[in-house]
Design a protein around this nucleic acid. Structure first.
Lengths: 203, 203
DNA sequence: GCCGTATTCATACAAACGTATGAACCCAAA
DNA sequence: TTTGGGTTCATACGTTTGTATGAATACGGC
């Protein structure tokens, strides 16, 4: 944790990582402040409480992801191409704790924290708009856009956190760069196939 | 919690539900024993520790799911049909905490508990075998079977825990039976489309 | 009826948790 | 150089955590 950065920033970084890796309850205030090279009281002082820090973290990492999201959605290219680029981004971007944090929150039965709802609405909005565009110009098949958007996001989100599946379950090295490239390509192909009106394998 | 059942059984049930809903750390021993109508010391007495109970839970719910899994895989029908039935089962089966528990464990960076690894290997083994069958008879497209298996499982697993997405994000009522039926149909269609050699939309 | 093992129960314990407190420290403005 | 607000620091507090303890109770074999 670079001590040149201001303390609140360091706390957000450390907390983002630890909340993603261990969950809200298992990541203790002492662990977070120690990794951020800050005093035990720093969280209370700068954010008010552990939960307030958590919400600030969700806001930050959620914003980071949805910014990348809508930026790609606004690029050039067919809707399917841009969807593929978003999927690739979710799978390859470094320091992207958002998917893990979001999945953790979804697994809980308590309501989603407000900042998270906001950013997820932004993500889904962008994805749904892309799908509607594709349906309008005939390159994306019919179907309920929100449902299609969920189907599209499910794979990269899950694959992102399931890097241990290849290793522990299938006995493959998930950290090998070549394996990762194949995985990204596979996911993009699979999603494209499930969305496209004219699958690429047609002669 | 039916008091006619034996105590260890009641503890497993209560713990399965609470671990899935709140996570390992947030589900306290007092909460679990109280819901199981058992004494505070019951977990220590019958299982040895909270973590041992957790592993027993994973073993039980993992076995329940992988039993259903391989049973469907052994039924009649084309590989694609059976995959569709598995997906439907994961999405609709009541009292199936396994997907939530598995996703929670995947989000952690600690190694997967051994009993879970065992059952997931069984699930993936069955799914991979189905995919290989389909590839052999030409009904499922080419592609790395383990990767295809992960793609197939990603959607129902995530949709299962993401029932709040329709409500909180998209503003739809996810508990409405008709909405749920549409969701299941959508997921099966999407997965079939991404796997099949000859998409159904071809004239 | 009595014994002996198995289970339940109330209570105790040390450790870890999130937060509160007040003194110490820093550093720009006066 | 002194002042004062912002920040850091060590420490303490009350709770809650998982587990240990030993007495009380339940219950089948004799």
């Amino acid at each position: 944790m670079n001590p040149k950065h201001p303390v609140p920033e360091r706390l957000l970084s450390a907390a983002g990582d630890l909340f993603a890796r261990h969950g809200f309850d298992a990541a203790s205030v002492r662990q977070i402040t120690s990794r951020a090279k800050a005093n035990l009281g720093a969280i209370t002082y700068h954010f008010g409480s552990k939960e307030a820090l958590f919400h600030a973290v969700l806001d930050r990492v959620g914003a980071r992801m949805s910014d990348r999201f809508v930026a790609i959605a606004a690029e050039r290219g067919t809707p399917l191409e841009r969807i593929g680029r978003i999927v690739t981004m979710v799978l390859t971007e470094d320091n992207l704790p958002a998917p893990t944090l979001i999945l953790r929150e979804l697994a809980n039965d308590r309501p989603l924290p407000p900042p998270l709802v906001l950013h997820m609405r932004r993500n889904f909005g962008a994805m749904i708009a892309l799908i509607r565009d594709g349906q309008r110009d005939g390159t994306i098949r019919d179907g309920d856009p929100p449902l299609l958007a969920m189907s599209v996001m499910a794979q990269p989100f899950l694959m992102r956190i399931a890097s241990r599946i290849p290793r522990d379950i299938a006995g493959v090295d998930g950290s090998d760069p070549d394996t990762r490239r194949r995985l990204v390509k596979h996911v993009v192909t699979t999603i494209t196939r499930s969305l496209a009106t004219t699958p690429g394998d047609r002669p």
